[in-house]
Amino acid sequence: MPDFFDAYFAQQIINGLSLGLVYALVAIGFTLIFGILNVVNFAHGEIYTVGAFAGLLLIVGAAPPLLAVVLFAMAVGAAAGVGLERLAFRPIRRFSDEASLKSRAMREATLLSSLAVSIVTRELMVHFFSGEMQVIPQAALLQEVIAVGPLTLTNGNLFIFGASVVMLGGLQFMLYRTRVGLSIRAVSNNVLGARHVGIDTNRTIVATFAIGSALGAAAGILVGLYNGNIFPYMGFAPGVKAFVAMVMGGLSSIPGAVISALLLGVSESVATDFISAGWKDMIAYGLLVVTLIFFPQGLFGHGRERV
């Protein structure tokens, strides 16, 4: 069908790339905490939501420029990340003997504690803000149309693209060129070993949470303004897709997660043209299953023991 590859198809690719960038934005912070640090964190979706609400409150209160909103959301996200670490992760890390550090049960316990924090946070937001979508001032939305021939982009696409590039580049720089990055990689590799060479593991973990959560919060406010909806349950769906992207990308590779996220977004979007959109989640999970069968280490991962 030659007439199929027309402007609508090109628009569908653009839709897919923007959807993929949304997943990528969430996946970057998620992969830093979950993949690199090797702790199971199911509260990242709520950090994303908290970031969106913090940004919205600032917009409604003071209507500052977008950069200030994003920085504020990141600050709140970083604080929330540190709080999350205190509440859900540190108590479970209180034994530092080798057996406990290597125990799967100890690591998996954070699955439940972070899930608990996630549920409590979400329901508290429902309690204080109601489950409804929040009203966003129309001027603050990132939906300004930029027409390119028959195709439509929005300024939100550009901001999300820019943010993804900056975050990805910044994180790669931090991880491989700075001492903080070095200590994060050391802790991720071997907690005991890192401690033996004098790295303050607690501080490193807190720093990772702060950075990862700040990125998650920035994603929340940007995507909220781009899609035009901010509500307490907004973190769930992108969180799941970011998780899929992270696993497909090989768990510990941030560029891998970003590429997988783009792949997911484009496949979902283009598939809508052929099958009902109601089935599009099946595409994501189908890709995940296929990846796990044929590339058990993920598309960009290298072998390492995992929970």
């Binding site: 609508y8 628009q11 569908q12 839709n15 897919g16 923007s18 959807l19 949304v22 899609n227 909806n229 349950y233 907004m234 769930f236 769906a237 979902e268 979007s269 283009v270 809508t272 043209d273 009902s276 959109a277 109601g278 599009k280 989640d281």
Partner: peptide, 21 residues
Amino acid sequence: GIEYFNPGNRDFRSILTKVAR
């Protein structure tokens, strides 16, 4: 055509592009 989307979905761009076609 009838386009169904999953509850919780908030990005309708690909459905709308298909509708526009």
